Simulated scan of single mutants.
Amino acid sequence: MKESVMSYTPKRTVKGDVITMAHGSGGKAMRDLIEDVVLGAFYNPELAQLEDQARIDLAELVAQGNRLAMTTDSYVVDPIEFPGGDIGTLAVNGTVNDIAMSGAKPLYLSCGLIIEEGLEIDTLRRILLNMRKAADQAGVQIVTGDTKVVNRGKADKLFINTTGVGVIPEGADISASRAQPGDKVIVNGYVGDHGAVILNARGDLMLEVELETDCQPLNGLVECMREVCPDIHCLRDASRGGVATVLNEFAESSGVAIRLQEADIPVRNEVRGVCEILGLDPLHFANEGKLVAIVPADKAGTVVEAMRQHPAGQGSAIIGEVESGPAGRVTLQTGLGGGRILDMLIGEQLPRIC
């Protein structure tokens, strides 16, 4: 049972305006930080015990499925706050989405903080409260964690690690190796938004574009998809490397080819503009709220219709088809009638995107 964060009154209050090395010392200053800022943001009965581990009822897990899904990820995005989100919302949604791509129901998260000396405590508090809001939206609880402080100049404000645990319902069998000729390729909306937002937020381009990150939880959308199509073949969130990299991974793992129709891929004009200026491809741009699904052809229309009824899937579209070969090849049919091979991202298009 979840309790509102408003029911918690801190017994301790953190002193000062910025993080100091004392806040990572393991002593009173650290306890003040944890009880005031961390527990103040994430309060729930499990976390409130302040043990070194979360203790989870196995009966609750077994009642929901027959396998665990577990993932971990570290977030080093620069800047730590950007239009539509911040490093905290990114950490929650990114880990929730990695769990959900197996068809699992995400339940619990850990939160590891690496804080640079000098970070404003109000900034930390704001980011952690946004993490709590993101967790509530996704229906998960942050139940354990860790806090470390490093010297000024040894990190960049704040890094976050989150580990997630979820339960896979019996019968779910989603894998990158299950794409079959004739299957359809689906995305849940505009691609490349997050990459364009982070690039512009760094101020190097000085572009006047009104874009927000697409960062959002996708577990509810996946549940809607599985209700109408329990046999989803492949599913992955298109974060670093973008849609192109995900589809190359599917094609290679399944030993198939995939052909995309450029005209069917939803890309905002603002994102296209950023890519044209820099000579980049929106299909390689990172997303933090977009998935790529491969489903049987006879279910594709039904899946898209169901996805469009969910807030995270209103822009869903069929963008391509799986073919028998050449194995491992992804091609893009352009609007001019030609075609080109769409490789996975080579090297680092944009560092510290998430």
Rank of each mutant, 00 (worst) to 15 (best):
T162H: 07
T213I: 05
A179I: 03
G195D: 01
D156A: 09
A172W: 03
A176H: 02
L207R: 09
A176T: 00
Y190V: 04
V191A: 15
I198R: 02
V167H: 10
D193W: 00
I160H: 11
Y190S: 11
V185C: 04
V197E: 10
G171A: 00
D193L: 13
Y190A: 05
M206E: 09
I168Q: 12
I160Q: 08
L199F: 00
P181C: 01
A155L: 14
S177H: 03
G166I: 14
H194R: 12
V209K: 02
E210P: 05
L207M: 08
K157T: 12
L199Q: 00
Q180V: 12
K157R: 14
K157H: 11
S175L: 07
I160E: 08
E212T: 10
L205K: 01
K154F: 13
P181S: 13
V187E: 06
E210D: 09
G166Q: 08
D214C: 05
G166R: 11
A172Y: 04
D173F: 00
Q180G: 02
L211S: 06
N161A: 15
K157G: 04
N200P: 05
Q180E: 14
T213R: 05
L158D: 02
E170R: 12
A155P: 06
Y190R: 05
L199H: 00
D173M: 02
R202W: 10
N161D: 12
A201G: 13
S177Q: 01
I186F: 11
D204T: 04
V197P: 05
F159G: 06
G192N: 15
I160W: 11
Y190T: 05
N200C: 11
Q180N: 12
D204R: 13
R178K: 05
T163Y: 03
V197M: 04
F159D: 07
A176M: 00
R178F: 01
T213P: 08
T163V: 09
D193F: 05
F159V: 09
Y190F: 03
R178Q: 01
L207C: 03
V165A: 04
